[in-house]
Amino acid sequence: MKPEAKNETQEMHRVEMTIGTILRWGVIVAAAIMIVGLLFYLVDGSLGVASNYHVQNFHQLLQGLIAGKPYAIMMVGIFALILTPVLRVVVSIYSFYREHDRLYVIITSLVLLILLTSFVLGIEFQL
């Protein structure tokens, strides 16, 4: 095996390990946040908001988080869980860029653009 091919194999292995670590820690952090929110709920006995209440923006989420409302804490956990695969896409773009694989950089960048667009549209249509 040529030294260049060996370096590429090692680089790919390192990137795969990084992606695996991101996914693993993203799920662990999101689960931990959700458990904290659940514990707050069990101690308080309520979610801290009226039934049929939905957070409309990040400002309301931040206010609920500062107030220690279980609903807001659990929403942050869900948000962290949603961001985990988005971070994976970002790392993949970097990986493909390092490999000089322009086609996959473009495709993965389009996937990221679609994800971000869906988040923005989801926020706009919710209001």
Rank of each mutant, 00 (worst) to 15 (best):
G37M: 03
F40G: 02
Q60N: 08
V43N: 11
V27G: 03
G26K: 11
S46F: 02
G45A: 07
I22N: 05
E16P: 00
F58I: 11
L39V: 14
N7S: 07
N7P: 02
T18M: 08
V29P: 02
R14M: 12
I33K: 09
N57H: 11
V43G: 00
L61E: 07
T18G: 12
E8Q: 15
I19T: 08
K6E: 10
Y53R: 05
Q63L: 07
V29W: 01
V55F: 15
I19K: 15
A5Q: 04
E16Q: 03
L38T: 02
G37W: 06
H54V: 15
R24W: 14
I35L: 13
M34N: 07
T9C: 04
A30I: 03
V15W: 09
S51M: 01
T21R: 02
S51K: 05
G20M: 05
R24P: 00
A31L: 14
G48M: 04
H54C: 03
E8S: 08
Q56K: 11
A30D: 02
S51G: 12
M17S: 08
N57K: 13
K6S: 11
G48P: 04
N7H: 09
H59D: 06
S46N: 09
V29Q: 05
T21M: 02
G48T: 01
E11P: 03
E16N: 09
I35F: 15
I22V: 10
K6M: 01
K6F: 10
E11V: 08
E11K: 04
F58S: 05
N57D: 06
F58W: 10
D44N: 04
G64F: 01
R14D: 15
F40N: 11
G64W: 01
V27Q: 11
V49C: 03
N52L: 12
V43R: 06
Y53P: 10
I35Q: 11
Q56N: 14
I22A: 01
G20L: 13
T21P: 00
I19P: 07
M17V: 11
V36T: 14
Q56A: 15
I19V: 04
Q63T: 10
G37K: 04
G64Y: 00
L47T: 12
Y53C: 13
I22K: 00
L39Q: 03
A32L: 09
A31V: 00
M12E: 11
A50N: 15
W25A: 10
A30R: 03
T18Q: 12
M12R: 07
E16G: 12
V29N: 03
L39A: 12
A5Y: 05
W25I: 13
V27T: 08
L23V: 13
G48F: 08
V15K: 03
M17L: 15
L38C: 03
H13F: 04
G26T: 08
F40Y: 14
L23E: 13
T9D: 12
I28A: 07
V29Y: 07
A32K: 07
H59N: 01
N52S: 09
T9F: 13
S46L: 00
Q56P: 01
N52R: 01
Y53A: 09
F58E: 08
L42R: 02
F40D: 10
G20R: 11
M17Q: 15
M17W: 06
